[in-house]
Simulated assay, not measured.
Amino acid sequence: MRRITQFLRDVGREMKKVSWPKKQELTRYTVTVITTVAFVAIYFSVIDLGISEIIRLVLE
């Protein structure tokens, strides 16, 4: 039990050392991630549609 208590104290100490992002940085990071995910999703959707059409033309 002592080891668990010591571990939790150490975690608390380390969490105080963390440099958390400011609101503006967090907003910028969030927009960047959402934009990147949307771009990749659209990219792969277009690629998938293209490959599907090629396969459909070959099989007909």
Rank of each mutant, 00 (worst) to 15 (best):
Arg3His: 11
Ile4Val: 11
Ile4Gly: 03
Ile4Glu: 09
Ile4His: 05
Thr5Phe: 05
Gln6Met: 09
Gln6Lys: 15
Leu8Phe: 07
Leu8Val: 07
Leu8Thr: 12
Arg9Asn: 13
Asp10Gly: 00
Asp10Pro: 01
Val11His: 04
Val11Phe: 12
Val11Gly: 04
Gly12Leu: 08
Arg13Ser: 09
Arg13Tyr: 07
Arg13Cys: 03
Arg13Val: 05
Glu14Thr: 02
Glu14Ser: 06
Met15Thr: 08
Lys16Gly: 07
Lys16Asp: 11
Lys17Gly: 04
Val18Lys: 04
Val18Met: 08
Val18Phe: 06
Ser19Cys: 05
Pro21Gln: 08
Pro21Phe: 00
Pro21Ile: 02
Lys22Leu: 06
Lys23Thr: 13
Lys23Ala: 15
Lys23Ile: 11
Gln24Thr: 09
Gln24Leu: 06
Gln24Cys: 01
Gln24Pro: 02
Gln24Asp: 15
Glu25Ile: 04
Leu26Pro: 01
Leu26Thr: 06
Thr27Phe: 02
Arg28Trp: 02
Arg28Asn: 10
Tyr29Pro: 00
Thr30Asp: 09
Thr32Phe: 09
Val33Gly: 02
Ile34Lys: 09
Ile34Phe: 08
Ile34Ser: 12
Thr35Pro: 01
Thr36Glu: 07
Thr36Gly: 13
Thr36Met: 10
Val37Ala: 09
Ala38Thr: 12
Phe39His: 10
Phe39Arg: 12
Val40Asn: 04
Val40Cys: 09
Val40Pro: 03
Ala41Gly: 12
Ile42Glu: 02
Ile42Ser: 05
Ile42Gln: 06
Tyr43Glu: 15
Tyr43Ile: 14
Phe44Lys: 03
Ser45Cys: 08
Ser45Asp: 00
Val46Gly: 00
Val46His: 09
Val46Asp: 08
Asp48Tyr: 13
Asp48Arg: 07
Leu49Thr: 11
Gly50Val: 06
Gly50Gln: 03
Ile51Arg: 01
Ile51Ser: 01
Ser52Val: 00
Glu53Trp: 14
Ile54Asp: 06
Ile54Pro: 03
Ile54Tyr: 11
Ile54Met: 13
Ile55Gly: 00
Ile55Cys: 01
Arg56His: 14
Arg56Tyr: 11
Arg56Met: 03
Leu57Pro: 01
Leu57Thr: 14
Val58Met: 06
Leu59Val: 10
Glu60Leu: 14
Glu60Gly: 10
